[in-house]
Design a protein around this nucleic acid. Structure first.
Length: 344
DNA sequence: GCGATTTGACCGTC
DNA sequence: GACGGTCAAATCGC
């Protein structure tokens, strides 16, 4: 077992190192204006593949450990659960869900993101994170001027996606929203692109029409899924999508969740439409994780990419945990920071 | 009619 | 007991 672990670790280091080298190459190509677009894309694909492999290794490892640990996991179902075996997928799921709910606060991945929205029409669109959210409650919070909205993933009933989020408007600045994400989207792991199509809910509808957004998101997700599934495919262009107009500050409040890490799919989350833009590819964003976790990367416009890549290249960390729960975490926010680095 | 939202009530945690 | 989180019936909108 010990040898096997060493071997896996070496492979992991190799993949991560390779990813870093590729990121460096990409950086060079980005500095050269004459560099063909295809070359950059190719590098992006390679980086993605490299990190995908690394992630798979990590996941496999974690999964093995967690499966054993989960065997003896205590259950604390809530009293209000209905019949355990119902034809209704909703009820069926709820019963399952109640076994996790009581542990949610402590064990689920939770992170907060502050979003400064742009005033004017389509304001709520800035809050969009690309996922389908359904509001299930609203509550006045003690000491808060504005009520807190509770949202869960639309695919919760059908696919058991446990992701939820809370939106709280700031007291001081009404244009500032604090969005707390809990859990991660498992719907994006199981589903075909059409099923996981991100679509802003009514309150967060962006300027783009609902239909267009949905279609575009589906295409993007599909394209990227295809890309990684078949690394030989090189000639597909990277789809583009607008980025939110928000300025965010992200805090990971409770990173390590062994249970959710098991099904964590970082690469899958990279298909997230908002994680894709012409100027900032998912791969280069991944590079930012290789850097110092205490570092706050601040960048804007085209400089953003370079700084993030630099952060990746400047650090020689090969033991970085890449199993991120940041499904909906907006890695493209011009400003993001992590408190309590989740690793090391 | 169906899906999403609202809102009062319930439950668990501290 | 207070508070936050969730449920579920009622309501709304397409």
């Amino acid at each position: 077992m010990e040898n096997s672990a060493d071997w896996e670790q070496k492979n992991l280091i190799n993949e991560l190192t390779q990813g870093m080298e590729l990121a460096k190459q990409l950086q060079i190509h980005l500095n050269v204006t004459t560099s063909p677009h295809e070359t950059r894309e190719l590098l992006v694909h390679k980086i993605l593949n490299s990190y995908d492999k690394a992630l798979s290794m990590l996941k496999l490892n974690v999964e093995t450990q967690q499966t054993a640990a989960a065997m003896g996991m205590a259950e604390s179902p809530r009293s209000r659960s209905g019949s355990p075996h119902s034809e209704d997928s909703d009820k069926d799921f709820k019963d399952h869900e109640h076994k996790h709910v009581s542990k949610k606060g402590k064990s689920m991945v939770r992170w907060t993101k502050q979003v400064q929205v742009c005033p004017g029409p389509g304001l709520e669109g800035c809050l969009d994170d690309g996922y389908n959210w359904r509001k299930y409650g609203q509550k006045d919070i003690l000491g808060a001027k504005y009520p807190r909205g509770y949202y869960r993933c639309t695919h919760r009933n059908v696919r058991g996606c446990l992701a939820t989020k809370q939106i709280q408007k700031s007291d001081e600045d009404p244009t500032l929203y604090e969005i707390t994400y809990r859990g991660r989207h498992t719907c994006t792991l199981i589903t075909a692109p059409s099923a996981a199509a991100p679509l802003p809910n009514k309150q967060e509808e962006p300027n783009m029409s609902k239909q267009n957004y949905q279609q575009q998101s589906r295409e993007i997700q599909f394209n990227f899924q295809t890309e990684l599934d078949s690394s030989s495919t090189r000639d597909q262009s990277i789809p583009s999508l607008y980025l939110p107009c928000s300025v965010s500050n992200v805090k990971v409040e409770n990173y390590v969740d062994s249970a959710s890490m098991v099904d964590n799919n970082f690469v899958g989350n990279l298909y997230h439409p908002l994680l894709v833009s012409p100027s900032t590819s998912a791969a280069t964003q991944m590079g930012s994780f290789v850097g110092d976790w205490n570092q706050t990367v601040k960048a804007s416009g085209s400089e953003q990419l370079m700084e993030i890549v630099s952060a990746a290249s400047a650090t020689n960390s090969s033991t970085v945990g890449l199993d991120f729960p940041f499904g909906a975490l907006d890695l493209f926010d011009p400003t993001f920071s992590f408190e309590n680095p989740p690793f090391f």
